[in-house]
Write a protein that binds this DNA or RNA. Structure first.
Lengths: 152, 152
DNA sequence: ACCTTTTTGGCATAATATGCCGAAATCCTA
DNA sequence: TAGGATTTCGGCATATTATGCCAAAAAGGT
């Protein structure tokens, strides 16, 4: 992972579907070595994959919520059960383990407030072992970028 | 935005760089109308862009933090100033406005704990008008997907 | 300075995207 | 439900792009 690899990543974070020729030009390489670097970044896991940034409202998911979850107990079985079940829920876009007061932070997308109530009651609570849930709804996004800061 | 458009979005969320021919096959269309739908989704804003999912650790950003920010006052000038300044900070990958106890939730990536301290002291605090900052570091990610749940 | 290893650039071929056309399907109205 | 208008589709020709291979240049070590 040298300076050129980071340039390639940043260029693709700005436009993940740009052609290899444009990518090569933007990092001052000819197409051949540029494509080889890209494939190496994929093979090494530095590039996990490519995605599309779709407007959730246009898609039909107008509600985004951040959900802070605390477990009742932290024995292995409770933790394992929670993580395994949460991974299977399509509404959960992310689930992170956090330092501080809460154990997990989830980002959840749903079609409406009624769908959110259904999600909490019939998807989350049945998992069991949950101590507390604290929901914050997103009512505006000031910034959203996938471009990492420059290094070196 | 019909069923096929949502299929296209979900397919591209799984692999944003798949060829139009593979995409067409996965949604049971021939390449021509599939590409036309894709271009329409881009033009309408339903598709905002394409990105690469890069491993921040491999890139050189091992620390990810969620930062909850409350402002001292909520007059227009304080809010405008905060949002304008935060948008310019490369370490800030996301900034959302939230219901509940905190005004803003930021996702921040940095090269280390010292870089985080520098970020808070020399980038965030100088903005002014900030009431409180509550940082939670990510020490594990249970799930991270860009694929929306199926609708219809 | 020499040799080894790695990375690069160019080229030929295969795969893909793009734009345009007529045909099929869908939708609206009577 | 029949008719006509509108939308969406599939196929084809052309232009653009990706891929794999080889020799040359650059980088690194002794």
């Amino acid at each position: 992972m040298d300076r050129k690899d980071r340039q390639i990543i940043r260029a693709l974070q700005r436009n993940g579907r740009m052609t290899n020729q444009d990518l090569a030009e933007s990092v001052n390489l000819s197409p051949s070595p540029c494509l080889r670097r890209l494939r190496n970044l994929e093979a090494s896991g530095a590039i996990r994959g490519f995605t599309v940034d779709a407007d959730p409202v246009a898609y039909g998911l107008p509600i985004t919520a951040f959900v802070q979850v605390r477990l009742e107990r932290h024995n292995e079985e409770t933790v394992r059960q929670f993580e395994q079940r949460v991974t299977c829920l399509d509404e959960v876009q992310e689930c992170h383990m956090l330092t501080g007061g809460t154990d997990y932070l989830l980002r959840v997308v749903v079609a409406g407030l009624d769908a959110y109530e259904d999600f909490i009651r019939n998807r989350i609570h049945p998992i069991g072992g949950i101590g507390s849930i604290d929901t914050s709804f997103v009512y505006g996004t000031v910034k959203k970028t996938g471009v990492y800061p420059m290094i070196g």
